[in-house]
Design a binder for these strands. Structure first.
Lengths: 199, 199
DNA sequence: AAACAATACGGAACATCGTTCCGCTTCGTC
DNA sequence: GACGAAGCGGAACGATGTTCCGTATTGTTT
């Protein structure tokens, strides 16, 4: 299940302590800052230090690294998810919408240093992140693909999960390699999808 | 510089000790076994244990993990490199040769558990591996691309490095994810390269 | 206001990596 | 056989994510 911001407040639940709320917010802010400075691979200790908080605290609020990353980027992921239908409604063609949405997604992955790298299954306990991203965005991507296929703009049969997974993979490691621009390859990928293909 | 099998034997060099040779071979064999059993991410200690050798020994023969991986797979990389010109000579068209060669490359990456994952720059000191693979195979790929472009089968302007890098990336993490088949996406990529595009 | 749990905190401690270092052993040669 | 260079083993280091538990804080209840 995807993490949610509100915690289950039972009927006879004592209200959350103010210092807990404050610390959680401090952690989110600190993490956001550290992530742009050092990438999502930044050590947990560094984030805790930046937030002026102990290591134990970070792990009570976020069971593991990935949960923290998810929390930090949830809003942006949400925005990306909501952009799908919007583009579909406003664009010239379903394919244009798909194309624009992919651009958005790539922007997001590429902007955050090393986010794409962390998206891989193995990397070390990033399953949560992986699952969250996919659960939230795959349906959106599927909707765009279906629309483009229905319009006859692309060949049908492409799994949204596979496409997103591939795009994520293509974005891996683009920071530390000036000669590699994933966007060109992603454009090629979309081109390969077109039907009938145009020169 | 790419590692080589022979070591620089100076004019007044004492011949290599037999136990050193034996251990190096034992390490290569052990590593090959461990790699298929546990993937290329297997701990160094495990390989040393399998070879019946201390940790220090492994690091004298191979300055770091990546060097060991390179050594283990060198022959196969070499075979892949040599297959390029061969395919070009024997195939129906340059594009068919390119396509076949990519298949070969993907086979190689996918067969070895987690090899593709290790190929990324950051992952942690795998730069040597990255460099070796690319240094050896990029020229071959470039030759195939040029041939196909000259024949008018694909649009020119694609950097071989970028294409290989992308293919490598697409293969990342396919072991631990049954729903993901990089080959389909790679086919799409090649399709996107075609010129004029056919349905 | 004072007492009292429930809640939260801090950071030492653990496990796992890759890698370095150095005292001891073994081999090849004279 | 003796001797020095080459090689060896594994303890030790530094970094990582994560767990644990004694202590401090806080909200409520009296």
């Amino acid at each position: 299940m995807v993490p949610t911001e509100d915690r289950p407040t039972g009927p006879s639940a004592r209200s959350r302590r103010t210092d807990a709320v404050r610390n959680q917010q401090a952690l989110l802010d600190a993490a956001a800052e550290v992530f742009v400075a050092s990438g999502v691979d930044a050590p947990v200790r560094q984030i805790a230090a930046r937030a002026g908080v102990g290591i134990g605290t970070i792990y009570r609020h976020f069971p593991n690294r990935a949960d923290l990353v998810v929390a930090v980027y949830r809003h942006q992921v949400e925005a990306c998810a909501e952009a799908g239908p919007a583009l579909l409604a406003g664009a010239d063609s379903p394919f244009a919408a798909l194309s624009g949405w992919v651009d958005l997604f790539v922007d997001f992955l590429v902007t955050k240093h090393g986010l794409a790298n962390a998206l891989q299954s193995d990397g070390g306990g990033f399953d949560v992140l992986h699952a969250y991203f996919l659960d939230r965005l795959v349906p959106v991507c599927g909707q765009l693909l279906d629309a483009a296929a229905d319009a006859g703009e692309i060949r049908p049969g492409t799994e949204p999960y596979e496409l997103m997974r591939g795009i994520g993979n293509l974005c891996v490691g683009q920071d530390d390699d000036p000669g590699y621009d994933p966007r060109r390859l992603i454009a090629l990928l979309l081109r390969g999808l077109r039907q009938p293909q145009q020169v």
